[in-house]
Design a protein around this nucleic acid. Structure first.
Lengths: 214, 214
DNA sequence: CCGCAAAATTGCGCGCTATGCATCTTTGCG
DNA sequence: CGCAAAGATGCATAGCGCGCAATTTTGCGG
């Protein structure tokens, strides 16, 4: 029985659309459950149920629990590379990278900060503290860095296969972002993200000068 | 029945010594087996057998196959931080870091290059290509970077808890090393490592200047 | 509007992993 | 020499990841 609801805006929604929705639903459900119950107390079965699919389907999308959780992180990171491509080539590289990061941060802001729950915050912190998840997060970052490197190579006219440069810049930028985010997450009187990221990337572009006085 | 063999040189061998030996034996066995058979065809049972311990013991040392494999990588990376502490404080930071890395690379050289086997080389490449291992490798690098950051903080008189600087430098240096190693591994007519690492770290210290011409 | 082929979901089964618990063995120390 | 702590083993179990085959859904052309 096919019920055609008036709001069946899935018209252009190809098959791909549905797949992405399911993918996101699974990833989101995983994060939500783990944030509130802890990794140990969430089974794949639970995630699948929360996303409204069969347990077996979970593994059609992700090869592990950790991958599902890191997927959101990966998507977010990918957008930075995508945003970098939109920047005019005339713009200096580091300026462009910083802008791209800030832009994506802003987009995610009214998405994450809409959850000022104390519960949520601590849940996330516990989550990223899980050893078995840190690897997945880093792996996701690495994948994103690869795309970032491609964008940088394109922009600077370097060769991603032979030149050290693009991957190096991408890697360094990734490290800076990670450090800034880390600092941001552990700041107890919460501080704004932007200055942290700008500072980190700025220091990078300045060659990480050795501080004279503490 | 306790058989006392003449070669019972375990005299000073504290309890710790034996543990470290077992740990290394397990890690080494894991790498060796995976390099020649592929990750899928190596069971924990096999690794334990190759190291001469019971299967159950494996998990007393490592919580996963991947962790065992990454353990060598971690140990090596840790030595860089340790080496950095030995450098005179008068030496400029980046110079010291570069020297520390080069030194450790040299130490590992007559350890790894003693295996010029074509088989071994390709085995290692396949191994680090395994998705489930990349995460472990990165995690190991992250742990090492933390120690590196501590050493840098100490040297520069910065605070690892509040200052962005030490972690940032450690992260960037880690990224540079990773990129250089990666480039080194994929170079088809093999090239020496040193120039790659020196180049990468040098570019970092120079602020990753945007190349003018390709 | 209808069926058909491709694609995705689902159910089932299995080998392996990771870990808690109880037991046995070894080590170091008085 | 014997005891207490630490480590190694064995055993058992809950999940996990995945291959396979059956089933349902989707998009497309007639």
């Amino acid at each position: 029985m096919v019920v055609r609801v008036s709001g069946d805006e899935g018209r252009p929604g190809l098959r791909e659309r549905k797949k992405q929705e399911t993918r996101i639903a699974l990833s989101w459900a995983a994060i939500k459950l783990v944030a509130e119950r802890g990794l140990e107390n969430v089974r794949v079965e639970d995630i699948a149920a929360a996303a409204g699919v069969a347990p077996r389907t979970f593994n059609n999308y992700f090869s592990s629990k950790g991958e599902a959780i890191a997927a959101r992180h990966l998507d977010r990171a990918r957008l930075i590379a995508q945003e970098l491509r939109r920047r005019p080539v005339s713009e200096p590289l580091w300026e462009a990278i910083t802008s791209a990061v800030i832009t994506q941060l802003a987009m995610g802001a009214d998405y994450d900060d809409r959850r000022p729950d104390q519960q949520w915050q601590t849940g996330i912190r516990l989550m990223i503290g899980e050893p078995s998840l840190q690897g997945e997060m880093l792996k996701a970052s690495a994948v994103a860095e690869e795309e970032l490197a491609a964008a940088i190579a394109e922009r600077t006219g370097t060769d991603i296969a032979h030149d050290l440069y693009p991957r190096l810049v991408a890697g360094a930028a990734g490290a800076a972002i990670r450090v800034a985010m880390d600092q941001w997450l552990r700041a107890d009187p919460p501080v704004p993200v932007r200055p942290l990221v700008e500072n980190a990337l700025g220091l990078l572009a300045a060659g990480l000068p050795e501080p004279r006085s503490s």
